[in-house]
Amino acid sequence: MPQPTPLGFRPGRSIPHRLDPRFKLILLAMVGIATLQADFRGLAALTVLILAALRHTGIPLASMAREMRYFVLLLVLVFIARALSTPGEALLSAAGVSVTREGVLAGGRVCWRPACVAAAAILFVVATRPSELRGAVIWLLAPVPGIPERRAGTMISLLVRFIPMVLDQARETSDAQRARCIECRKNPVARMAVLTIALLRRIFEDADRLVAAMEARCYSEDRTGPAFGATRLDWLVLLGAVLFCAGLFLVP
């Protein structure tokens, strides 16, 4: 039985769910840019806001943390490398290696920024239907020459739909292979090949079923998308976000 993954849309009526997807896309871009400049106070404020919004949408934070474990491991490694390699005032010394104050601060800053962006992006994906995402992407790409915005919009909405499916299938395939003692095989190449072949076969079959369903519904790139309309809530949230980001730039 597939377990729900936090990397896909979850229906709801929370404020992030009710916002206009175009505004959500703009807010997401603003978070990405603002975190480039933000320092600890700003990042702390942003983290509180994002965590509150995630909780409001009903995402189980524990399962989200479990899904992100490799990312967290990477951040921990980056933090340790920074803490040990940055010269400065030693906080702790052992066996000729020092953890410096400057290193801890630099490592904290470098790791906290992508963590905020990742959490904001998960919030966006969880609170936005793929069809709304498609419409927002088409709206965003329409002025850009050289990109077929309708096809790109469809492909991005498919991408968002496929990620949880791939993760579910990978989990199931991995569990099935573990039950057949795959871990007894020490050859990493064989393990990668066995897992990937089984995974790709299964998800290609799912993709074929999706194509058949799209054809059966007379799929056309010219279909009518969802109608967007900005409400007072959208403008209020955007205004709040602009002020917050301006604050991050002026008082980092």
Binding site: L7, A29, I33, F71, R113, V117, A118, F124, A152, I163
Partner: peptide
Amino acid sequence: IAGVGIYLLAGTIGLPVFAGGTGGIGR
């Protein structure tokens, strides 16, 4: 190229598709 291009485009507009679930032009 179309597949990788869509992956990069999705990441550029901020979707959590880059390594570790990050996204955004900053990456």
